[in-house]
Amino acid sequence: MTIDIHVHPAFYEPINADAAREELRHCELDIHRNGLAPLEHVFNQMRCASLDRLCLLAQDYSSAMGVPLVSNEEVAQLVSFAPERFWGLASVDPHDGDAPDRLEDAFTRLGLKGLNLHPGRSRFDPADPALEPLWAVCERYDRPVLFHAGLSWEKDTLAEYGHPLRFEALAQKHPRLRICLGHFGWPWIRETAMLLLKYPNVYADTAALYFDNAREFYTQCFTRDIPLTWIDRSLRHQVMFGSDNPRFEQIRMAEALGTLGLRDSTLELIRGENALVFLGEGGGA
């Protein structure tokens, strides 16, 4: 099974009947001129990228915005339209006192498979003891956390909150909690690799395309910033394919991954098997 672990459904047509809500998403995500995506288009895109599953991310910064940007209910609704193609990750605002209860509700009632958080947008430190109840819910239900790491293009974000070192204390304190550094923590690729090497509960996704085209950028990140052997030999069970679509180019990124020179067995891990393990869906070792 091939999986894109990092997809934002903010502009999927079924959850954008309200034009004001669509405009809010364009503004807050700083993504423009992309139009709305009917599910038929999403499925065509998946076929061209040879993807079986998309992991759709909710986004909740409601203490700053008043409402979630993409709610858990909206993600669950999209999953219900195509449960054979979509999985969903919940989001809660860590500053919300009810966040642990809302997360538990998302796991139990809505069937969402993990938690998506953006420290750079919500301005929090993953090692903050106040967040322990959230991690407790994740551990109780064996659900992972996907963090935005590294640079963020979204409005009102600071990259310093996404530095890989910010996640080390959490990884060390909670060895049973699986966490993913989104975007491979770009530009801190080596630092992300360092965390993956030391902590087997830390994963990273490939959802970065900030310069050049997909082949050129992946070549820079995964053969020059770090040698390809680091992933192919040592980190092969902790890297997952992610695209950050619609920010970046899902089809071309999926194609580019295959041109780097990784072993076929490593590609299988990155393209899907690692995501199954990360999500607790019973993948291989």
């Binding site: 423009h32 001129r33 293009w153 050049d212 050129e216 920010r247 970046f248 180019e249």
Partner: peptide, 16 residues
Amino acid sequence: SYCHARMLRDYGSTAG
């Protein structure tokens, strides 16, 4: 290699 392969500010996405 194409010059258009870059992040576009007006779109907030990469031109591929």
